[in-house]
Design a protein around this nucleic acid. Structure first.
Length: 421
RNA sequence: GGUGAGGUGCCUGAGUGGCCGAAAGGAACGGUUUGCUAAACCGUCGUACGGGUUAAACUGUACCGAGGGUUCGAAUCCCUCCCUCACCGCCA
């Protein structure tokens, strides 16, 4: 969440940036400031009164010890009077703090300066395009047909076992998927990321920390024990450092993790969900960084280059989009989406999203660091997919299909064990 | 699922009503000494929110799992909840 002192000092700027993100309830900004004023006033009143109570109580202790009972009794009455006043003040203070917090979490992160204006996905800015869009032979088909033809993925079977959106990978399909995961993790760790295998369920606090809660509970599966199935490894991995104060020399923290991701995507059935395009359970390898606030844009560029290198090595045609203000996620200050071109569907599919959250997540999670003997400051957090498996797989199958079979990119051949499916 | 124990600062761990934001040890950091390393010695070593200041200094309040209660006064007593650990049962 945003920091109140910053909002206070840059009120107009905050409103302007929020409007840029097409956030409607700008009055919440003023509400935050009013509640913060109220909070300060009540805090002062409470503290001063409590200070009197404390000092009187100490005196009573001494008087009693000295056997001066009458004086002690008189003081007790004084304390009782103060405490009568204190109750309502305390109650008002608690209410105000809760209200302030509720208002504060309504405010999304501010878009960074270089975020393009716009509201819809059509207004996202294409930053770069790379790789070659293949000319497919006349009989080329979409991946769901290839999946059947080569016996790689069984969508019907998933319906039987669980429901729609839970594909079953089999044979070479399962193997290819495993090869990709292995390859991604190896690539990440060789670039300084520490590998984690996190829990696939998280508690409410963790879901809140990365911004899934409040609001987006509908997008997650909730278990009987009130744990959420993770929608991305970002959630458990970023929470590793929740409530920690790092040393500046610990930064940057670079983490990577493979995990399945579970998404309810309620009400999203329709044309775009065929095959692997949108499913309820999919695999993904994620990268997360916690960095010094001065370095987060540098880190962002590094992560973008990292993901781009992966796509180049996989020989997939891709483009990088800088999301416009209105299309960015709630907690993000800037986001780059990576899309690969699915030649048989003739469609761009999102396979990665790399974001800088600046201090928005770390403020919620209280992930901080200390420089020398300075005060704790919030780190900046970033994350990105490297990469989401199903669409990569879909694209790879479609783009690499030939009459003889499906070609496996060079970089994957040792992992997969063959050059052809 | 059953039974028992327990949650104190970066860690270990003392503390059962006022002198406790909290002993002691360890770790870490700074320094002295040393040819280097080690050892030894000295010092520093919580967080949040207020007040104050150009900034500090200084100062108030809160925090010993969370929330409530008793009391003039709570880490310490009471209640509720959460969590962890151990053993048994079941099981990969």
């Amino acid at each position: 969440m945003l920091q109140v002192p910053f909002i206070r000092q840059n009120t107009d700027f905050v409103k302007e940036r929020l409007a840029f993100k097409h956030f409607k309830e700008l009055e919440v900004v003023d509400e935050v400031l009013e509640l913060d004023d109220k909070r300060k006033k009540l805090t002062l009143e409470y503290d001063e009164t409590q200070a009197q109570v404390n000092s009187l109580s100490k005196e009573i202790g001494k008087l009693m010890a000295q056997g001066k009972k009458e004086e002690g009794e008189a003081q007790r009455a004084a304390v009782a009077a103060l405490k009568e006043k204190l109750g309502p003040v305390n109650e008002a203070l608690n209410e105000t703090e809760a209200a302030l917090h509720n208002a504060l979490v309504k405010l999304p992160n501010l878009p960074a300066a270089i975020v393009p204006a716009g509201k819809t996905p059509e207004e996202n800015e294409v930053v770069r395009q790379g790789g070659k869009i293949p000319d497919l032979y006349a009989g080329a088909v979409p991946h769901w047909d290839l999946a059947k033809q080569y016996d790689l993925i069984d969508f019907e079977l998933g319906n039987k076992i669980t429901g729609s959106g839970f594909p079953v990978f089999k044979n070479k399909g399962a193997r290819l998927q495993r090869a990709l995961i292995q390859y991604f993790l190896d690539y990440n760790t060789s670039n300084g990321y520490t590998e984690y295998a996190p829990p696939y369920m998280v508690n409410e606090t963790s879901a809140y920390g990365t911004g899934q809660l409040p609001d987006k509970e509908g997008q997650m599966y909730l278990t009987q024990d009130s744990y959420f199935l993770i929608p991305t490894a970002e959630v458990p991995v970023t929470n590793i450092y929740r409530d920690e104060i790092l040393k500046d020399t610990d930064l940057p923290v670079k983490m990577t993790a493979y995990s399945p991701c579970f998404r309810r995507e309620a009400g999203s059935y329709g044309k775009d969900v065929r095959g692997l395009n949108r499913v309820h359970q999919f695999d993904k390898v994620e990268i997360v960084q916690l960095v010094h606030p001065d370095k987060s844009f540098e880190a962002l560029d590094e992560m973008v280059a990292h993901v781009e290198a992966l796509l180049n090595q996989l020989e997939l045609p891709y483009r990088i989009l800088r999301l416009c203000g209105g299309d960015m996620s709630f907690a993000s200050a800037i986001t780059y989406d990576f899309e690969v071109y699915s030649a048989a569907q003739q469609k761009w599919l999102e396979v990665s999203s790399v974001s800088n959250f600046e201090a928005y997540q770390s403020n919620r999670m209280k992930i901080r660091f200390k420089e020398n003997n300075g005060k704790p400051q919030l780190v900046h957090s970033l994350n990105g997919s490297s990469l989401a498996l199903p669409r990569i797989l879909a694209c790879m199958l479609e783009n690499n299909q030939t009459i003889e079979g499906i070609q496996v990119p060079t970089v994957l051949q040792t992992y997969y064990g063959s050059h052809m499916i």
